[in-house]
């Protein structure tokens, strides 16, 4: 399963990168969203998959899945939510002010920086 996941993560990262290199601001944001999904899965895969019960002591299992990556990922999910929404509003405001979401037209013009 880990091997399969490794390739899935690769695909996620690939699509994310391709989206981030595009011109449209919205696509870049979608790309960052994909990127964080990939990163979360990578963290989880690194710790090994499906080893033991969920990390709840109530399960009274012999072994538990590694709780630390899960805690890290939980933090990361919430943070990436905050960042994504910030990005979104940034894009939305940039469109309102400048009338475009094309990155090529959003670049700082000379003498204006």
């Amino acid at each position: 399963m880990e091997i399969l996941m490794a390739f899935t993560i690769g695909i996620l990262f690939m699509s994310a990168t391709y989206l981030m290199l595009s011109k449209s601001l919205l696509r870049i944001i979608i790309g960052t969203g994909l990127l964080s999904h990939g990163a979360h899965l990578l963290l989880l895969t690194m710790a090994g998959l499906k080893r033991g019960a969920p990390p709840l002591l109530g399960e009274e299992a012999a072994s538990y899945a590694d709780p630390l990556p899960q805690a890290l990922i939980l933090t990361a999910i919430v943070i990436s939510f905050g960042v994504t929404s910030f990005f979104l509003v940034l894009a939305y405001r940039a469109y309102q002010e400048l009338g475009t979401d094309n990155m090529d037209r959003l670049r700082g013009t000379e003498g204006n920086d």
């Binding site: 969920p54 709840l56 002591l57 109530g58 939980l74 919430v78």
Partner: peptide, 12 residues
């Protein structure tokens, strides 16, 4: 504290 859940999930 005992089962899945907590501040983040509850809040969300």
């Amino acid at each position: 504290h005992y089962y899945p859940g907590g501040g983040f999930i509850g809040g969300l």
